[in-house]
Design a protein around this nucleic acid. Structure first.
Lengths: 225, 225
DNA sequence: GAGGCACCGTGAGGATCCTGCTCGTCGAGG
DNA sequence: CCTCGACGAGCAGGATCCTCACGGTGCCTC
């Protein structure tokens, strides 16, 4: 695993880097926020571990900038303080986890593994693929088995949402938030309706269905039966 | 995870409750501060989500009272206003986090998880395993010997409950509480019925049974014979 | 600005699936 | 051998989901 470590204190940095390397990871290091940002935007890291107090550009701003650049690499903050306010700030800036110094190295490792293990939101990808179904995000085109499928905007967003989470059950609530931007229950069958329409275009007439409903939970898109 | 939701607006409450349930949590609801306080002091919740504006007893006072009663359950406030002053007040009253309406449901979930972060051991466990039986909690998928097994919601919860207590005898009463939310004896064989169905899917056709009956006591899931 | 069209949300009706209950049978333990 | 608990098949009520037709809205064209 490739890890970006941004930490100004040389001693801490050496300690953490060594531990991570012993655990079999590749570690890139930066001593301030600016370098960190530069390396992070280069991409290719599975996780970044970022000190909050950094010269030139503090950790919070750095992660914000990285996110703004469209990089989704999970981030863990290291910090001296870990009050509620700090945590919230960190989460809002796009951080994924939080660790107060001093910390047990084992805990850092555990969190890194936890973050890296989670569903790789096929980010930065211009083509999503599930079985013989393809979605080209740039051309806004969808094909199944090479055959073109015309989708309405909402249908497109819905399918995209599903495909980005292949194999994962997606709840109605997640869909309402992610596809409709509803933050309340519309109490109608919007979701069902659109799933139905989507099925009509994506699954109907093909050998095996890709969109499956999980009763009481939501929907999944999945290649196998 | 067991969550206490205290919210007077029926619509919001329904929406949040549903979302949480979809995410696999058990939700207790209260419509005003008084009921909320009552339920909270009963204990047993991992997190409480509390509206600030509530009939009878506002959210702030409620959490203060809960804390005074010696209950440490983490609290998240929901609020229309979220100025700095309000935040400080909330934190001082013993709240742990703050969320301004309207909020993204995903955020609420993230914060709940962050707050409830239990002792690091069972944290982030997304795959349960007993012998060659695997349950992926995120994908809501179960496999045995690599072969997919489809489970109904209730069956899923039942199996999850058993697997989380591998090797431990689970009584009928525990199951009724933990899986069915029954706090009384239905005097029927619901449990037996579902165990039977579960066996049909999980054990039938495989070399060795995993689910064992302990006569007069309950059931265990266990790898060895 | 009128007319037409595409897209989307609504709601009803019906199909499907889940689940808890009953009941006859089985088998272990006393 | 008797009793009690456990098992599993079958059933019906109810929850959930699917589909369809309709109408509203906003955009484009003329």
């Amino acid at each position: 695993m490739r890890i970006l470590l941004v930490e100004d204190d040389a001693e801490t940095a050496a300690y953490v880097a060594r531990g991570l390397e012993e655990a079999g990871h590749v570690v890139d290091r930066a001593a301030d926020g600016q370098d960190g940002l530069f390396l992070a935007t280069g991409g290719g890291h599975d996780v970044m571990v970022v000190d909050r107090m950094l010269p030139k550009l503090d950790g919070l701003s750095m992660v914000r900038a990285v996110r703004a650049a469209g990089i989704a690499t999970p981030a863990i903050f290291l910090t001296a303080r870990a009050g509620v306010g700090d945590r919230v700030e960190g989460l809002e800036a796009g951080g994924d986890d939080y660790l107060a110094k001093p910390f047990a190295f084992a805990e850092l490792l555990a969190r890194i593994n936890a973050l890296a293990r989670r569903p790789p939101l096929q980010q930065e990808q211009t083509v999503l693929r599930v079985a013989d179904l393809e979605m080209d995000l740039i051309r806004r085109a969808v094909t199944r088995a090479g055959q073109r499928i015309d989708l309405q905007p909402r249908e497109f967003r819905l399918l995209e949402y599903l495909m980005r989470r292949e194999g994962q059950v997606v709840t109605r609530t997640m869909l309402l938030e992610g596809v409709w931007d509803f933050h309340f229950d519309p109490k109608t069958s919007v979701v069902e309706t659109h799933i139905s329409r989507l099925r009509g275009k994506v699954d109907k007439g093909f050998e095996r269905d890709l969109i499956h409903t999980v009763r009481g939970a939501g929907y999944v898109i999945r290649a196998d039966g």
